[in-house]
Simulated assay, not measured.
Amino acid sequence: MSITQQYLLDSYRAAQHDERTPPAPGQQDWQVIREVRDYGRFRAVVEGRPAQGRIRAALARIARAGSAGRGSVSRGSVARTPRPHH
């Protein structure tokens, strides 16, 4: 059963029992996302970590580690064979 079918069934049952209909699926998704974000920030403050910029800092660390793992030769310092002069 899909989420839409479940919603329609719940709405039908609510109408039969003179109850309020449940909220439509997806109606409160952004509110849930905001609450999860706020809870993560709250936990960071309680644990003494910075509340903002944590994801960007983590991605920057991963990017730096990934570029350092490619080897000691950078793109600009590739050894090339000299061309013969004519």
Rank of each mutant, 00 (worst) to 15 (best):
S67H: 02
G69N: 03
Q28Y: 09
P23V: 01
V36W: 14
Q5R: 01
S74L: 04
R13L: 06
Y39V: 04
R37C: 05
Y39N: 14
D10W: 10
A15S: 09
A14F: 07
R43M: 14
T81N: 11
L9V: 06
P25H: 00
A79F: 07
R64K: 12
S74V: 03
R54W: 15
R41T: 13
A57D: 13
P23K: 01
L59M: 15
G66Q: 07
Y39I: 08
Q31N: 02
A14C: 07
A68I: 00
Q28P: 00
V78M: 12
A68Y: 04
Y7E: 06
I33T: 09
V32Q: 13
L59G: 05
A79L: 12
P22T: 02
P84S: 09
R83V: 11
D10V: 03
F42S: 13
G69A: 10
H85V: 09
A44D: 15
R64P: 01
Q52W: 13
S77T: 10
Y12I: 09
A60T: 12
I33H: 12
A51H: 08
Q27N: 03
D38F: 11
Q28F: 09
V45G: 08
D29P: 01
I3K: 09
A60V: 11
T81K: 14
R80I: 02
Q5K: 00
S77K: 06
P25A: 01
H86F: 07
R75T: 05
R37Q: 14
P22N: 02
S74H: 08
R80W: 06
A24P: 00
A63D: 12
P82F: 03
S11D: 00
A44F: 11
R80H: 01
I55T: 15
Q16T: 09
R34H: 12
V45A: 15
A14D: 03
M1S: 00
I33N: 08
S11L: 09
G26E: 03
R49F: 13
R54P: 03
R54F: 11
G69H: 00
A79N: 10
A58I: 07
P82Y: 06
V46D: 14
Q16E: 13
S2P: 04
T81W: 13
A68L: 01
Q5H: 00
Q52V: 14
P82E: 10
R61Y: 02
T21I: 08
Q52T: 15
G69L: 00
Y12L: 15
R61T: 07
R70I: 06
R20C: 02
S77E: 14
A60G: 07
A79W: 10
P84W: 04
D29T: 05
L59A: 15
L8K: 07
R54A: 14
R13C: 00
V45E: 15
W30G: 05
S11Q: 07
D18C: 05
S72V: 04
G48A: 13
Y12G: 04
